[in-house]
Amino acid sequence: MKTYNLAFKYRIYPNETQANIINVTFGCTRLVYNRFLAQRKELYETDKKSVTYNTQAKELPLLKLELPFLKEVDSIALQQSLKNLETAYKNFFQKRTAFPKFKSKRSTRKSYNTVSTSNNIRVEGNFLKLPKLGLVKIKLHRAIPQNYVIKSATISQEPNGAYYVSLLTEFQRDIKEVPSDNNIVGLDFAMSELFVSSDNQRADYPRFFRKLEAKLVKAQRELSRKVKFSQNWYKVKLKVAKIHNLIKNSRKDFLHKLSHELVTKYNAIILEDLNMKAMSGVLNFGKSVSDNGWGMFTTMLQYKSMLLGKQVIKIDKWFPSSKTCSSCGNIKDSLSLGERVYNCECGHTMDRDLNASINIREVGRSLLAY
C-alpha cells in the first residue's frame, strides 16, 4: 500500500462575519510574511547572516504581543505563512525561482493555508468546519471518499470576489499497473487544436481566450478610463475579473473532460517533454500557448493515469518527430512550419501532425515499463 495525496477544490459561501475573518487572516498572514522577509533581508545585508524558520517561529509569539490583533486569527495560518517564506528561500537558493518578493494587499488572488489537527477541518453535510470560522456553507459538488484523510485547507479569494477552499487529502491505495499491451497512443502538440493523436483524434480546442478577447479588451479599455480606486473603477474591475474567470473555468472544464476521456480509453499515453515558456518566446506564440493550457493538460493526464495504474511517458523534446517518416524512418534535413503535409522520398504522404504523433507513439513504446 502506498500513500498518495489528492486535492479537492470547492466553492464556499461564508457569511458576513466569516468573510471578515477570512479577509483579516489574509492581511495578517501577509503581514507576518513581509515582516520576517524584511528581517531576513536586513540581517543578511548588514551582518551577512542567515536566519532559519525555527528561529523566526520562536519570534512569532513576541510579534503577537506587539500586535495583539494577530491573536484573533488562526495561529496555524500564521505559522504556515512562515513556512511558505522558508520554502520560497529554499527554492531561490536551489535556483528554481527568483528571490522572494513582498506580498501586496492589492494582489489579484489572496489565500492562506491551515493544517488539520484533532479533526478541526471536516465536512458536516453541506457545511465545512474550519478553524476560527466554524461551519461555512460549501458547494460539495464532489464527495470526498471516507478513507481519505484531510491534511490541510487553503482558503482563497478570486479577483471576482468568490471564495474557495482547496482540501488536501491523504489516502492509501494499492494501485496495480495495467498492462500497456498495444493500447497506446501518441500525442503531438498542435498550437490551434491542442493535440493530434496517433489515432488521428483532434482535440479541437475551442480557444476560449480568443473567443472572449474582444470582450475582454473592451472591458479593460473601459477600466483604464475610470478614476483608479473609485466606485466605478471597482465595478469595471469586477467585470474584467469575471471575464477572466469565465475563460479560466471553461478551459479547466474542457481539459478535465478531455484528459479523463484519454486515460479511460488508453493504457499508456506518450507525449513530448516540451518547454512551453521557451516555445512561446521564440515563436511569438505567447497568447496561443497560454490559451490552450498544454502544461495543465499534461499534469491532469499524469495524476489521473497514476490513480488508474496507467502510464504517461514523456520523450525527449529534441526527438525529430516532425522530420521523421513514420513509414520508412528517413529523417529530413529541414521542415518549415508552413509545410503541413509530410512528403517522403519513399512515397509516403501524411498530415504532418499525424505523422509526428505516430513517431512519438513508437519511440515511447520502447520506454514503457511493462
Rank of each mutant, 00 (worst) to 15 (best):
M1Q: 12
M1T: 13
Y4N: 06
R11W: 01
Y13M: 10
P14M: 07
N15A: 09
E16Y: 12
E16H: 11
Q18D: 06
N23K: 15
T25P: 03
T25C: 11
C28K: 12
Y33Q: 01
N34A: 05
R35W: 03
L37I: 11
Q39W: 06
Q39M: 12
R40M: 09
K41H: 01
E42T: 15
Y44N: 10
K48A: 11
T52R: 09
T52M: 08
Y53M: 10
N54Y: 12
E66H: 06
F69Q: 05
V73M: 09
V73C: 06
D74Q: 10
A77L: 02
L78N: 00
Q80V: 08
L82W: 05
L85F: 02
A88V: 02
Y89A: 07
Y89S: 03
N91D: 12
R106F: 13
R109F: 07
K110S: 13
K110M: 14
S118H: 14
N119T: 08
R122F: 05
K129N: 09
L130D: 00
K132A: 08
L133N: 02
L133K: 03
R142D: 04
I144F: 11
P145R: 04
P145T: 02
V149S: 03
I150H: 06
K151D: 05
T154E: 03
Q157F: 01
E158S: 14
P159W: 07
A162S: 12
V165P: 03
S166T: 15
D174S: 10
D174E: 14
I175W: 01
V178N: 04
S180T: 15
S180M: 10
N182E: 10
N183Q: 12
I184E: 01
G186A: 09
L187A: 03
D188A: 09
V196E: 06
S197V: 06
N200A: 14
R202Y: 06
A203C: 15
R210C: 04
A214K: 15
L216W: 06
K218C: 09
A219F: 00
L238M: 07
A241Q: 04
I243D: 08
S250W: 00
R251K: 13
R251Y: 10
T264Q: 06
K265D: 07
Y266K: 07
A268P: 11
M276K: 04
A278C: 08
G281M: 09
L283T: 09
K287P: 05
S288K: 08
N292V: 15
G293F: 00
G293M: 04
T298L: 07
T299F: 02
Q302A: 14
Y303L: 05
Y303E: 04
K310Y: 02
K310N: 03
K314H: 09
W318M: 05
P320Q: 04
S322P: 09
K323I: 01
L337W: 04
E339H: 07
N343S: 13
D351M: 10
N355M: 11
R361C: 00
V363W: 01
L368V: 14
Y370R: 09
